[in-house]
Design a protein around this nucleic acid. Structure first.
Ligand SMILES: NC(=O)c1ccc[n+]([C@@H]2O[C@H](COP(=O)([O-])OP(=O)(O)OC[C@H]3O[C@@H](n4cnc5c(N)ncnc54)[C@H](O)[C@@H]3O)[C@@H](O)[C@H]2O)c1
Ligand SMILES: NC(=O)c1ccc[n+]([C@@H]2O[C@H](COP(=O)([O-])OP(=O)(O)OC[C@H]3O[C@@H](n4cnc5c(N)ncnc54)[C@H](O)[C@@H]3O)[C@@H](O)[C@H]2O)c1
Lengths: 209, 209
DNA sequence: ATAATATTGTGGAAATAATCACAAACTCGC
DNA sequence: GCGAGTTTGTGATTATTTCCACAATATTAT
């Protein structure tokens, strides 16, 4: 295995494999194959084998893959065997839903800090968190970690993103429905349900109801 | 323009273009170019022109594109010049956040029905909606439309998806962190923040905090 | 009018990604 | 221990996607 750079498209599939494997593990499945895993994520078996071969040889001929071992490998590759600190910015409906969500910890993340700019919210309790002032980001060790989930209105998102970049944030999960301009060393992933709906609407036939 | 099938990868970019164009429109920008739009969505100008050329000729040499006209074309292509009825299933934190979200209507969608299986929630009011019993899906005209946002726990998602398919649903926006198996004529889009975070974690260097 | 500048739409080249197909290696039943 | 059946990892092939480059056309300046 040379130290060649792994294509983005492959990296982006790994979390999908990992999620499916963890689902199998929950059901006490101990072994799988590229065929089996592929059928569960709608990806060809050859594709899965090629993808995994970028990182090593994790399977055994005739048998397939040990679920637990492959999970461990993928977690290592994705760097989610540790737990990353993530901040939530914008404690409206979405921010609150995220802080109440229990699905982060066993997949490599935990929310450590929450921010807002609404004086009525700053200082108040949200579950186990005390909402901090977004203006304090950058002051002291207010913002732990390098990852942020951004849940502010679209109009405020770019401005805050700029500030986050200044403060060393390297990964932004952006819920605001706008594109963010950031330096090349900062990653952004977008979550916009409307984009998802529109991608599907293209394929709908006939009338609405 | 022959009636060739448009690659999925192109369709999936159109909503991103549309979102950026609508953002420009909000700022009273009347004209743009492939260059300009490209810089705003981080996609090459050539790519944008090639994508659009699949559907017609919307630009003018020397000038570029009229924002309003291009929006109208994209809305037509994506079939979001009309408004689609969408149901929400699972009225927990996420379901509630979605019903309270104001960003659907002007992008082609509206929530018409909400469902849950919790007796304590069925019949109760959630904003302007009365939560219906998920068991009633399929009975009468309880479920309008062909699109659903699925916000139930992972363990329940596939079962409900099966039922939705039976009832003629053709598009599922799935918030549950599991892959759904559906017939080829049914579309699924996935929203899982952890997948987004994991895709970014791969590229992070150094330690957590 | 003319030159300088801007921008589109597209054919073709280049780059990237997906698929095929098979030797090698393992399992299992008898 | 042998044959039948599985499944991996990968080189080669095919398919898809992206990028380049430029003629054609429009705008703007002078
Ligand atoms: N709620 C949903 O289901 C949903 C769906 C799709 C997209 N979104 C997007 O997610 C984002 C958040 O949505 P929401 O429904 O939670 O909105 P919301 O209005 O309920 O909450 C926004 C929060 O951000 C805070 N805020 C505003 N400006 C800020 C600033 N400059 N700095 C820090 N905090 C600031 C507000 O005080 C508020 O608490 C929005 O961009 C929205 O478009 C939400
Ligand atoms: N809240 C978040 O921020 C978040 C983040 C990521 C993913 N998700 C996922 O989104 C989904 C919903 O999350 P949530 O936080 O709203 O969960 P939640 O537990 O708050 O709500 C789930 C709702 O679904 C209902 N439900 C359960 N089984 C049902 C069934 N068979 N039929 C109909 N309704 C049923 C429950 O009564 C409840 O109202 C989950 O799959 C969760 O993993 C949520």
């Amino acid at each position: 295995m040379v130290d060649r750079v792994v294509p983005d498209v492959i990296v982006s599939r790994l979390p999908v494999y990992l999620r499916a494997l963890q689902f199998m593990q929950m059901q006490a499945v101990t072994t799988t194959s590229s065929q089996d895993l592929g059928s569960k994520v709608n990806i060809s078996a050859a594709q899965i084998r090629k993808d995994l071969s970028q990182f090593g040889e994790f399977g055994k001929q005739g048998t397939g893959y040990n679920v637990e071992a492959l999970i461990a490998h993928l977690e290592k590759i994705l760097q989610v065997e540790k737990v990353w600190d993530v901040a939530v910015i914008g404690m409206g409906d979405m921010g609150h839903a995220l802080t109440r969500y229990g699905g982060f910890l066993n997949r490599g993340f935990r929310i450590t800090d929450c921010f807002d700019n609404d004086p009525a919210k700053i200082g108040s309790q949200a579950g186990q968190y005390i909402i901090k002032d977004v203006a304090d980001i950058g002051k002291g060790d207010c913002l732990r970690g390098k990852m942020v989930m951004l849940c502010v209105p679209a109009a405020a998102a770019q401005k805050i993103a700029n500030k986050l970049v200044e403060c060393g944030v390297k990964a932004i999960l952006n819920y605001a429905p706008v594109h963010l301009s950031v330096p090349a060393d900062v990653r952004v992933q977008y979550i916009d349900p409307v984009i998802g709906l529109q991608r599907m609407a293209y394929y709908l036939h006939e009338k609405n109801e």
